[in-house]
Design a protein around this nucleic acid. Structure first.
Length: 476
RNA sequence: GGGCGCGUAGCUCAACUGGCAGAGCAACUGACUCUUAAUCAGUAGGUUGAAGGUUCGAUUCCUUCCGCGCUCACCA
C-alpha cells in the first residue's frame, strides 16, 4: 500500500471519529459573521487595547497551518487567499471541540466562533470558544512553503493551484475585473450585450479551421464558431446599432503559450462609425481597462513598462518602412520583421485587401482596407475595421476566397449566402472590432502563458485516477 | 506536425563518470498552554512515468511509448 493510499484510508477513518465526537464530517450551512478578508480590513489595524471589548466573530475557512503545543495551539485559516490565525486552548473550548482540533488535518474546512485579540507577538487572532467541522480533506495538501510548482498539476487540478498559490487566485480575479470593466464601458456608451450561435451551419468571420459537430435529430453537421462576426453584423442590419458579445470562439489549430483551442473574444459593432472612430474608442477602452484591472495605465509585463495611456498609431507601410510594398508581400514583411518588435501598445492600420475579406476598401486606394490591429508585447490582441457593407463587393470577396480554397487554402473564408442576403437589405456604415480577452489578461496580469489565465486550459486527458476504488475501500 | 528539454516519496527538490535511492515539508508516535516555515525525540513512506535493450550492475546509456514544458510552423 502506498503512502497516499495509507493517508487516504487513515483520513477516511477519521471521518468516523469526527462523527463519534458529535460533529459532521461534511457539515451544513454555516452563517459566518465576517469573511476573513473583511476581518482583516475592519480590524487589521486595531491595537490590543482597541480589541479589549473582545469583538465576537464567526468565521470559516480552510486550515493552512497547525501548531500544536500540548494543551493549546494555533492554526491559520485561509479564505480568498488571505489568512487569519486562530488560538485554541484546551480550557477555553468544550471537550469534544478540543478532541476535534487534535484530529485536524491541513486542508480541513472548519468554522470557528470566538473573539478577536492580539497575541503576545501582536498578530490579530481569534480566540476560539466553539468549533464547527465543515468538510474533511482526504488527500494531501501541496507543500505549504513552496506551494504547487508542477505546471501540469496546476493546469489539470486548478483547484489545487488556487488553494496553494494565492497569486493564481489574483490572476482570475483580475480577469473578472477586465471583463466587467469592458462591459461597463461599453454599456455606458449604449452598447447592448447579445448572444449569437456557437453552433453554425456556415462558419466565418476569421481565417481558421473549425471544429465540427453533429445534431442528431436534424441530421446536420454544425461548426463551432470561429468568430461571432457575421451574426453580429446581421444584428446591425436589423437596427441594433451598438452590440457586443463576450464569449468563446473555437479554432481547431495549434496550442501554444498564446493559443488555446477555445478562447474568449470581445466583439463589438457600432453603426455609423469607421475604423478611425474605433481607434479613438479602443484607446479609451484599453486605458480604462488597464486602470480598472491594475490601478494604473502603465503596466509592467515581463520586465518592461507598457503605457496604455500612450498608444502609438502607425500605418503598416510606415511600420515596415517601405512604401512600395503591397499585398501579401507587405503583410509578410510586417509579420516577419516588425510584429515581434511591437512591445509597446501599438495600433497598426491600413491592411492590404487580399488578407481582409470583410473590410471596406480605402476610398483613396482600393488596394488597401480600413483596418487596424492592436499589438502589445509582440502579440496581436485586437483587430478592427470599417465593415464592408456593399453586398456586390462582399460577393466578389467571397468568390476570391473560394478560389483560394480551391487552391488548397484550408482557412479561406466560406461563401455565406445567408449573410449576403442580410447585407442586401442594407447595412449602415459600421465599425467592428474584436479584442482577445485571454491575451489582454496575460498582459495585465504579467502572465507568460495563455494557460495561466484560462482556468481549465485544454490538455490531453490523463489515465486512470483510481479514486473511486479508494473511496469504496472506506466503506469496508 | 518538427526540434530541444523534463518526468525520482503526497508536495518541493538532491543523488559526481553507470556502483547501497536521500533531504525538507506533509503523515504517524511521544513531549510542550502565545506559536507562526513552531520546536525537540523517534517511526514509517519508492514499480525512479511505462515497456524493452546494453551491462556483473541502470534513476544514470540506447530504443519505443505516455504525459508536460519551451520553441518553430499555423493562428488570435
Amino acid at each position: 500500500m502506498s503512502l497516499e493510499d495509507d493517508l487516504f484510508a487513515q483520513r477516511l477513518r477519521r471521518t468516523g471519529e469526527i462523527e463519534a465526537l458529535g460533529f459532521r464530517a461534511y457539515g451544513q450551512r454555516f452563517d459566518a459573521s465576517h469573511t476573513i478578508p473583511q476581518i482583516l480590513a475592519h480590524y487589521g489595524s486595531k491595537t490590543a487595547e482597541e480589541l479589549a471589548d473582545q469583538p465576537r466573530v464567526r468565521i470559516a475557512g480552510r486550515i493552512q497551518t497547525v501548531r500544536r503545543m500540548g494543551k493549546a495551539g494555533f492554526l491559520h485559516l485561509t479564505q480568498s487567499g488571505e489568512r487569519l490565525q486562530v488560538y485554541i486552548r484546551k480550557d477555553a473550548v468544550p471537550e469534544p471541540d478540543y478532541a476535534l482540533y487534535e484530529g485536524f488535518d491541513l486542508g480541513d474546512i472548519v468554522g470557528v466562533d470566538g473573539y478577536l485579540f492580539r497575541t503576545r507577538t501582536g498578530e490579530l487572532s481569534v480566540h476560539a470558544e466553539k468549533l464547527t467541522f465543515l468538510s474533511k480533506i482526504l488527500l494531501a495538501m501541496p507543500e505549504k512553503w513552496h506551494g504547487l510548482e508542477d505546471v501540469e498539476i496546476r493546469y489539470r487540478q486548478r483547484y489545487l493551484d488556487l488553494i496553494a498559490n494565492p497569486e493564481s487566485q489574483k490572476i482570475f480575479v483580475t480577469r473578472a475585473k477586465i471583463v466587467s470593466s469592458l462591459r461597463r464601458q461599453l454599456e455606458e456608451r449604449g452598447f447592448v450585450e447579445v448572444e449569437t450561435p456557437m453552433m453554425q451551419p456556415v462558419y466565418g468571420g476569421a481565417a481558421a479551421r473549425p471544429f465540427v459537430t453533429h445534431h442528431n435529430t436534424l441530421d446536420l453537421d454544425l461548426y463551432l464558431r470561429i468568430a461571432p462576426e457575421l451574426y453580429l453584423k446581421r444584428l446591425i442590419v436589423g437596427g441594433l446599432e451598438r452590440v457586443y458579445e463576450i464569449n468563446r470562439n473555437f479554432r481547431n489549430e495549434g496550442v501554444s503559450t498564446q493559443h488555446n483551442p477555445e478562447f474568449t473574444m470581445l466583439e463589438f459593432y457600432q453603426a455609423y462609425t469607421d475604423y478611425q472612430g474605433l481607434m479613438d474608442l479602443t484607446v479609451e477602452l484599453l486605458k480604462q481597462t488597464a486602470i480598472d484591472a491594475t490601478g494604473s495605465a502603465v503596466v509592467e509585463y515581463q520586465g518592461t513598462k507598457l503605457d496604455f495611456g500612450n498608444i502609438r498609431r502607425l500605418s503598416m507601410q510606415e511600420a515596415v518602412g517601405n512604401p512600395s510594398l503591397r499585398g501579401h508581400a507587405l503583410v509578410e514583411a510586417f509579420e516577419r520583421q516588425i510584429e515581434p518588435t511591437l512591445f509597446e501598445p501599438t495600433i497598426i492600420y491600413d491592411y492590404p485587401v487580399e488578407v481582409s475579406p470583410l473590410s471596406k476598401n480605402k476610398p483613396s486606394d482600393p488596394a488597401f482596407v480600413e483596418r487596424f490591429e492592436i499589438y502589445v508585447a509582440g502579440m496581436e490582441i485586437g483587430n478592427a475595421y470599417t465593415e464592408l457593407n456593399d453586398p456586390k463587393e462582399q460577393c466578389r470577396r467571397f468568390e476570391y476566397q473560394r478560389t483560394l480554397k480551391a487552391a488548397g487554402d484550408e482557412e479561406a473564408h466560406q461563401m455565406d449566402e445567408d449573410y449576403l442576403r442580410a447585407m442586401s437589405y442594407g447595412m449602415p456604415p459600421t465599425g467592428g472590432e474584436g479584442i482577445g480577452i485571454d491575451r489582454l489578461t496575460m498582459i495585465l496580469t504579467n502572465s507568460k502563458s495563455i494557460r495561466d489565465v484560462i482556468l481549465f486550459p485544454l490538455l490531453r486527458p490523463e489515465g486512470e485516477i483510481g479514486i473511486a476504488e479508494r473511496l469504496r475501500g472506506g466503506d469496508v
